[in-house]
Design a protein around this nucleic acid. Sequence first.
DNA 1: ATGGCTGCAAATAGTTTGCAATGAG
DNA 2: CTCATTGCAAACTATTTGCAGCCAT
Lengths: 143, 143
Amino acid sequence: MTATPQHSAPAAGDVTARLQARGIRATAQRLQIATLLLGAPQHLSAEQIAEALQARGVALSKATVYNTLNLFAARGLIRQLAVDDRRSWFDSNVEPHYHFHDEVTGALTDVALPEVEFSRLPPIPAGMEVASLDLVIRLRPKG
Amino acid sequence: MTATPQHSAPAAGDVTARLQARGIRATAQRLQIATLLLGAPQHLSAEQIAEALQARGVALSKATVYNTLNLFAARGLIRQLAVDDRRSWFDSNVEPHYHFHDEVTGALTDVALPEVEFSRLPPIPAGMEVASLDLVIRLRPKG
DNA sequence: ATGGCTGCAAATAGTTTGCAATGAG
DNA sequence: CTCATTGCAAACTATTTGCAGCCAT
């Protein structure tokens, strides 16, 4: 667990190592998806990933994209966001953080954890604990 | 108004009035859906609504349920929630508030506005304003 | 060899659209 | 009567499932 943000160009070997570190076999398709998504902090839909890779000549089906993304999410490599009713977004940033959501364009932007502070939170129901705290600030053009 | 029905739990006339107040013509199906959803503060999925009404012998298709719910949401009578990736939830409480989301059961529970206070929020991007502030506290069993 | 795992075609679930029927003015 | 509006069948899109083939052992 590194606290240092890393935005450096993704070395293929590094991505392979990150997959293997979580017990994920590094197949060709998985490497393509992981390299694309983990290359920078970003939010992509399954469709965007499928299109981007197919445009590069990578042969894969949408089902494989979904299966792979679900697997990555289950192993904590990425995070699936429920922000938009239309489709799922997959976030390469698994550190806790929040989001701006542009209601017009649908664009998602990260809000760093220290940008938000809570001075009061509700009591958590007995026997439960907080799994995550998702804050979405929905934005519209002023006027 | 004459021939007032002496039964019906949440005053049917009141629901009709609430629809008309927002320019929504009160047809039979719409009244059924509105009465069910607005009868109490709650969160229902389109499917739950369709099933509940069909079980009561009301004839309607799922498409009508969706069309009606979308119309209600557009007119501010209800609120559509993007909390769960699987399906949309429709909330009869349009006042600002937050939610607990039980990750195991999928259950949604309201968190009243004063239960949460922010002591710090990020700067809003220029030219934009906050449309809504959605907070979801996801819960899992402790242990 | 072989047994679990992978990746894709087909199936399913969720939601929207197009248009005949309806009913308010 | 008129025509905007309604409600539904069919279409469409997003996602999951079942299974033939593959790969590490």
